[in-house]
Simulated scan of single mutants.
Amino acid sequence: MREALIVWGGWSGHEPEQCASIIAGMLEEEGFKVYVENSTEAFADPGLSDMSLVVPIYTMSKIEREELSNLTAAVRGGVGLAGYHGGMGDAFREAVEYQFMCGG
Score class of each variant (00 low, 15 high):
M1H: 07
M1E: 05
A4V: 08
I6P: 01
V7D: 02
V7F: 00
W8I: 00
W8D: 02
G9A: 09
G9M: 06
G10I: 06
G13P: 03
H14R: 02
H14V: 09
H14M: 05
E17R: 15
Q18F: 12
A20L: 02
L27E: 09
L27A: 11
L27Q: 12
L27P: 00
E30L: 15
G31N: 04
F32S: 07
K33F: 08
Y35V: 05
S39D: 05
S39G: 05
T40G: 06
A44C: 05
A44P: 04
P46K: 11
G47Q: 07
G47S: 10
S49A: 13
M51S: 05
S52W: 09
V55F: 06
I57S: 02
T59C: 11
S61M: 03
K62R: 12
E66G: 08
E67Q: 09
L68T: 03
S69P: 01
S69H: 05
A74S: 15
R76E: 15
R76F: 09
R76K: 12
V79G: 07
A82S: 05
Y84E: 10
H85V: 09
G86M: 11
G86C: 12
G86S: 13
G87P: 15
M88H: 02
D90G: 08
A91T: 07
A91I: 07
A91V: 09
F92Q: 01
R93H: 04
Q99M: 03
G104L: 01
